[in-house]
Design a protein around this nucleic acid. Structure first.
Length: 884
RNA sequence: GCGAAAGUGGCGGAAUGGUAGACGCGCUGGCCUUAGGAGCCAGUGGGGUAACCCGUGAGAGUUCGAGUCUCUCCUUUCGCACCA
């Protein structure tokens, strides 16, 4: 055996072996428990980043561990290949996105292979391949037939200079990224998928997802946002009625029934002192038509991005319309305002304003001189004197006051009573409101899956017939940032109407890339199936047993996938409802951020590898010096690795310098996988050193001749204390690693445990036959425990330890209870909860005996001297607590 | 703004209501030598000669016992529907 560990040679050998054996190609197999282990597929951005290394190593550790547990494991990989970055690269390089994307895929496949992942590459797919996206189109048409896909108008970010729809990412401080023009909201026709039809099921089924993190389930539940409340209509006062009869248009029907609102707090109805409608609300539009100041305000609301975070953090502004509605019970005239914080996309686009019982309404009333009328008395008894600030007790349920016939009722009963009264008069009813909106999938972009529709002047909107699928995206176009090049591509646009045969125009919108990623996990099960979207093999492999990916996908991707799977279920294509039985959300990878301020105020980011940090007395980074030009740079703290902050680390360099095992070991050891991971070059070197020492230690052991491990020999009692102790540590390590990988998913503590075992092995000096057999056993346990995490080096070391069979084909070993047995265990003794002593007792000692032993401890005696022991708590084999 | 998490030595982190700081990085001292991104040994939260005392963002609470559970506050990170 070679004395020095050479990562490159070791990894080449191991990878070659796996490839020759076809070790990771998965087949459906009756009898064995299947284990479908899936990591979120990457966007082919050009190079792998540390987040990928972390993600794929987590998945790989689980896949390899479960394989050794006897499972039939499938771990596939593919490419989320459509999307905006390819178009940006195309603009920058004047090359088609297709070429850029496919080159990136080729390069990144090589990078992934160098990590030694146990992937079945025969199932590889890319979403930009027509063989894949034709099924997007096929599914879209099936959904359209069932009313699950429909056309409606939607609001987008519009760059008035480029005459182009912008993604939220392309809006920077309210301006277009390329033109700098102020972005506007614009309504355009779009296609939607009716995810809201599944809202209740998507919500209820969260309870069944026991293998998902609680926080993800909570976030999804909040996102779906079921609220029970009351929908009611306020009749128009004379002024509004007069206006509406003048401006009545064909589409004014929503206005005819009065001003509709939805509220969860019908109990506060008698406190309504104003109404607020969104700028896009038809009533606002009508009022704006005869009032120039109001029209200007509405126009102002149209500026800015469509992002909800922007809308919600914008200054709350509003303007009176001069119109009024009538209170359904008192008949009082209530003024109607236009307000920028009312969302047209939620509820009815209008809200009733109750300043006394809603903080946002309270502030709005203050700044617009609207009266505040208290109608619910808080249960806390807190009282609010006028002129004071907002008191949150008033947002709680309580007892109604000044509310006509409902006065004196508790809130919950009042809501029912008010809803009943409204329903009797046909003015309102109880209903459920969802926060979840239908999924707009139209993108006015080139590099995506074409929506398979044709527009014919005679026949209208016509579906592309199934036998003409896929509608193939021409791959030679180069976008220029202004508009969609597809719309200018005559060969694509001009076509025949499938119904009448006349000339027609093809739809040029493409699909949201979330469509591509909403079902790829199903396709892996039958990736070679040309005649159907999936086949019966999907029933064998699905659901995914373990899904691994970033927490940033907690809502959208996962919710869309849950919806899509149900849509396919209802089409009879799959039997499952939930695609992912277990979900693991990994944390982000962070690195330090260094920058310089340029004269024009912008920041220039410097890569941390090029900075020598300066620290203050308490070792905090306060600044640094560039290693390139020796000029000072500013420290901006830690942030996720990103291109824009120039703080990424190239995993390729890492693998070339230290090897994949070191990279994997670092990614798994530096933090628990669910939390953020801080990059540390020193940490990487530490793992590298460990692998060297492990190698050296096996080398030194086997160069004195191979011995069978102690447990295989099975000799009984002749062990020295040191040998017994080492065996106990070894088998304890095995227990801990099995739990930490298999149940707790804390790979960092599994690695720490192996290191403890390794340290213990180093301190074990016996050279006799039994001693060497015990050391063999300890080293074997260390190597096999580490093998899912650092598979290459363990593959080679396993052979060197004398094994013919490859380590990936070894069954995961079980700890020997005899090795774990102890003759004495240490109990801690507390007095009033503070540690005061330790006692050694045989395991299983009864309470009375344990407490007597604790009382006899000299230190304990000092602390209880002269005091009465009031209570004694005994936790068997762990502790005694004496309360005095 | 709304929703979700996190906060422990100089640093990353460990502690599955029961010994706070496992394991590693860094640092200090020593040894060794085929000078290697080496290896080995010892030390490393603060205070105190010691006995001991203090210590997990801040404040309260539950408990025999709280880093862990509950509440309030502060700070940081993630998501917010056209980035993927």
């Amino acid at each position: 055996m070679q004395e020095r560990y050479e990562a490159a040679a070791v990894e080449r050998a191991a990878q070659q072996y796996w490839q020759q054996q076809g070790a990771f190609e998965a087949r459906e197999r009756a009898g064995a428990r299947k284990y479908y282990c899936l990591s979120m597929f990457p966007y082919p951005s050009g190079r792998l980043h540390m987040g990928h290394v972390r993600n794929y190593t987590i998945g790989d550790v689980l896949a390899r561990f479960m394989r050794m547990q006897g499972c039939n494991v499938l771990q596939p990989m593919g490419w989320d290949a459509f999307g905006l970055p390819a178009e940006n690269a195309a603009i920058a390089n004047n090359r088609p996105p297709a070429a850029w994307t496919r080159e990136n895929i080729d390069y990144m496949r090589g990078q992934l292979r160098s990590l030694g992942l146990a992937i079945d590459w025969s199932r590889e797919l890319a979403t930009c391949d027509p063989d894949y996206y034709r099924w997007n189109q096929w599914m879209f048409l099936r959904m359209r037939e069932r009313g699950l896909a429909y056309k409606a108008s939607g609001v987008v970010n519009w760059d008035p200079l480029d005459q182009t729809v912008l993604a939220n990412e392309q809006v920077i401080d309210g301006r277009g990224w390329r033109t700098g023009a102020l972005v506007e909201k614009r309504e355009i026709p779009m296609y939607y998928l009716r995810i809201t039809a599944y809202a209740q099921e998507l919500l209820s089924a969260l309870e069944t997802l026991n293998g998902w993190p609680e926080r993800v389930r909570l976030m999804q539940a909040n996102w779906i946002g079921r609220s029970e409340g009351v929908e009611l209509a306020f009749d128009y006062a004379q002024d509004a009625r007069a206006l509406l009869t003048h401006t009545r248009r064909a589409d004014a029907t929503p206005l005819s029934a009065g001003l509709k609102v939805f509220t969860t707090r019908a109990d506060t109805l008698f406190g309504v002192t104003f109404m607020a409608v969104a700028a896009e609300h038809p009533l606002a539009q009508a009022a704006g038509a005869r009032d120039a100041r109001l029209a200007a305000f509405i126009e102002e609301c149209r500026r800015g991005s469509t992002m909800e975070a922007d809308v919600a953090t914008a200054e709350k502004r509003g303007m009176a319309t001069g119109l009024h509605v009538l209170h359904p019970f008192t008949g009082e005239a209530i003024p109607v305002f236009v307000a920028n914080y009312v969302l047209m996309t939620y509820g009815e686009g209008a809200v009733m304003g109750v300043p006394a019982h809603d903080e946002r309404d309270f502030e709005f009333a203050r700044s617009h001189d609207i009266p505040i009328r208290t109608v619910v008395l808080p249960a806390s008894g807190a009282s609010q004197s006028s002129g004071e600030g907002w008191l949150s007790d008033y947002a709680e349920y309580g007892e109604l006051a000044d509310s006509g016939p409902f006065t004196g009722m508790p809130s919950a009963a009042a809501i029912d009573a008010i809803a009943d009264a409204l329903e009797r008069e046909g003015r309102g009813r109880k209903r459920v409101q969802w926060r979840l909106r239908d999924w707009g999938i139209s993108r006015q972009r080139y590099w995506g899956c074409p929506i398979p529709l044709i527009h014919c002047e005679r026949c209208g909107e016509v579906a592309v017939p199934d036998e003409q699928l896929p509608v193939v995206l021409p791959e030679s176009l180069v976008p220029d940032g202004a508009g969609n090049p597809l719309a200018r591509c005559a060969e694509f646009v001009n076509c025949r109407c499938p119904q009448c045969g006349g000339s027609a125009r093809r739809e040029t919108d493409t699909m949201d890339t979330f469509v591509d990623s909403s079902w790829y996990f199903l396709r892996y099960a039958s990736a070679d199936q040309g005649a159907a979207v999936v086949d019966e093999r999907v029933d064998y492999w699905l659901p995914v047993d373990q899904y691994v990916g970033g927490i940033e996908h907690a809502i959208l991707h996962l919710l869309y996938s849950r919806f899509w799977t149900r849509a396919m279920r209802d089409l009879g294509l799959v039997k499952i409802s939930e695609p992912f039985a277990n979900l693991f959300t990994q944390g982000m990878v962070l690195n330090h951020i260094w920058c310089r301020r340029l004269p024009d105020g912008r920041r220039q980011y410097i890569n941390p590898a090029d900075v020598e940090p300066q620290v203050d007395a308490s070792n905090q980074r306060v600044g640094g010096v560039s290693l390139v030009d020796h000029e000072p740079v500013e420290y901006e703290g830690l942030g996720t690795m990103s291109k824009s902050k120039n703080n990424g680390v190239d995993p390729q360099a890492l693998v070339e310098q230290y090897g994949a095992d070191t990279a994997r070991l670092f990614a798994m050891s530096a933090a628990p996988p669910e939390q953020t991971l801080e990059w540390s070059e020193e940490g990487v070197i530490g793992q590298y050193r460990f692998l060297h020492r492990l190698w050296k230690s096996v080398h030194d052991h086997v160069s004195a001749g191979l011995v069978p491990r102690y447990s295989a020999v099975g000799t009984g009692g002749a062990l020295s204390d040191a040998a017994r102790q080492l065996r106990r540590v070894a088998h304890h390590t095995l227990t801990k690693v099995t739990q930490d990988i298999g149940r707790r998913r804390t790979f960092n503590t599994a690695i720490a445990a192996v290191r403890e075992l390794f340290n213990a092995t180093g301190h074990f000096t016996a050279t006799d036959g039994v001693g060497r057999a015990v050391r063999q056993e300890a080293l074997e346990i260390a190597v096999i425990s580490l093998s899912p995490i650092a598979p290459h080096v363990c593959h080679v070391l396993w052979h060197e330890l004398g094994h013919e069979r490859a380590i990936i084909d070894e069954p995961w070993p079980q700890a020997d209870p005899q090795a774990l047995a102890q003759t004495l265990v240490e109990l801690i003794v507390q007095v009033n909860g503070k540690l005061r002593g330790r006692i050694q007792l045989p395991p299983g000692t009864q309470s009375d005996a344990a407490i007597d032993a604790a009382l006899a401890d000299p230190t304990v005696q000092r602390f209880i001297a002269g005091k009465a022991v009031r209570k004694s708590i005994h936790v068997p084999d762990k502790l005694v607590n004496l309360v005095v």
